[in-house]
Write a protein that binds this DNA or RNA. Structure first.
Lengths: 295, 295
DNA sequence: AGGAGACATAGATGATGTCTATGATTAAAA
DNA sequence: TTTTAATCATAGACATCATCTATGTCTCCT
């Protein structure tokens, strides 16, 4: 259906004319001249075929019909004003939300301080954390349920854009039970003589270490598989075996001495963590700011 | 505060872009070309400093921020659409209200059929009847509580415009108790020998009849004063005296013979009823239609 | 009376909204 | 793969129409 009034701009003029009770004042409020306002109101009146104001020597007053119109237009204009305020708030990061996907351990051990700093700078932004495996996080992202994902690289997917953010170093650690290994440097072969604890889920870290052993003609088969990084650490501390973990995730334990790193005669490949976003999709302000902060 | 977006027209384009999910379709809905819509959306995005859509090969989809904006703008646009519908209804007299002021008796005995016909033609228009004396009705009108008043003329008030509508003839009537007067023609002096019943309130009718007697050097003092035209009629029927009433208001009783008119040797002045409106104030559509109907 | 304020009207002007034409990109069809 | 047909973006020309200046009319107040 075609509306009678083609130009919503006129409603803004009408709104101010009512609010100020004067075409002259409305003109000032809108940085226009009085004849412009006069003309605008006339257009509305002609469009509806109904007078909206009666003119008095002191200004204008709504007619009955004008009053009906105003009851709608007032709400409408207030909503637009609210919308503009809200958009300004979004832009200033006084408001908004940021939805991040990632693994439990990354959140807990690495992203926490970043999120804290982010939240303290922008307390108005609501944070939503979705944890899952890398494939799950990719799905979240493609379904639009998160703004960005923090995952181990490399990710090869034409729909995604991944930006390397920081490096983590995986390593083997053990507890007091294997104190004899503290000063030794082991070969991979030697290592296999000890019980190995690995992460059970299909994580990139597990894939890379398995491949590393294979490249030396060795087969890495874990004696224990556990479902979380916390358990990986805990099992190593209790002497159930040698855990393969991200060094940065056990920095507390290494410092306290409850765990120590096993030196190897080969260097383990570092793992790169990247921030993953949808290619061809503009980031929300909140998300851009986060990426900026991570650096 | 100066808003970022100077042109509310852009929101209409935005609204349709969201609703259709396509700039091309929005252009069709608005009878514009696709580049115009493209340009409009760009203006909004530049104005807010935030992308509102991400562009896909099948159309456009809201960003997070765009979605926030839409939640406000949708309501706003719906309100405007409702406003336009309502105004059309007002103009077509499918909606609206008509507030009439007048005396009880005028409503009951004269305006009722007119109001009935008006209401049956325009059932969507709500009728509000405010009864009061002529001065009260004038006050209602000046306070904007009624659209028009139906009162006895003349009214002299520079703020008011009175349009003569029809004539009424006041007369003296009596019931069976005074049957002896049925065929006589009385002088005013003779009339005063009978008990007279007058309307108690300061009505124009009472003023004119009092003045008439005075112009003949006579004093008209009622034996009974009553507060309504109905009582005036009822008292006369029961023989309590001779009532001064508007002939048109007792046409039923005159026809039925329960009352008869007293012939006088002087002619009583007719009274003119006029429709009174505010000068310099446009009438509502509903009110104009009413006046048109009354003729 | 005269002045100051209101809104209305007329005509000129220029900003800007709109158009046509074209390009870039993607997805589906051949 | 190549083609075709969508999408939106961009550039530049054009003309609409919103806005301005100048003036008129009316009312109220001094």
């Amino acid at each position: 259906m075609m509306s009678m009034i083609k130009n919503y701009e006129l409603y803004k003029v009408f709104y101010w004319a009512v609010k100020t009770g004067s075409l002259t004042q409305a003109a000032k409020a809108l940085y226009l001249t009085q004849p412009s306002v006069s003309h605008a109101i006339k257009q509305l009146e002609d469009g509806f075929g109904v007078p909206l104001f009666f003119r008095t020597p002191k200004g204008v007053e709504l007619t009955q019909e004008g009053n009906v119109l105003y009851s709608y237009i007032e709400q409408s204009m207030i909503l637009i004003a609210l919308a503009e305020e809200k958009m300004a708030a979004l832009k200033n990061l006084d408001s908004g939300e940021l939805r991040i996907g990632g693994s439990d351990s990354l959140f807990k051990h690495y992203l926490l301080p970043i999120l804290e700093s982010y939240h303290s700078r922008h307390p108005g932004i609501k944070l939503h954390l979705h944890h899952g495996t890398t494939p799950e996080v990719i799905t979240f992202l493609k379904e639009g349920r998160i703004d960005l994902g923090v995952v181990r690289m490399p990710i090869v997917d034409p729909q995604l854009k991944v930006r390397e953010s920081f490096q983590l170093q995986d390593c083997f650690v053990a507890g007091a039970r294997y104190a004899e290994l503290k000063d030794k440097t082991l070969s991979l072969e030697q290592l296999l003589q000890y019980p190995v604890i690995l992460f059970s889920r299909n994580s990139r870290a597990r894939m890379t270490i398995t491949e590393l052993f294979q490249s030396y003609g060795l087969t890495l088969k874990p004696d224990i598989e556990v479902g979380s990084v916390d358990l990986l650490i805990e099992f190593a501390r209790r002497g159930l075996g040698i855990s393969y973990v991200t060094r940065e995730f056990v920095s507390n334990e290494l410092e306290a001495g409850s765990l120590f790193e096993i030196r190897l005669d080969v260097s383990l490949p570092p793992s790169h963590v990247g921030i993953m976003t949808m290619r061809n999709m503009p980031l929300s302000i909140a998300a851009s700011r986060f990426i900026e902060l991570v650096g």
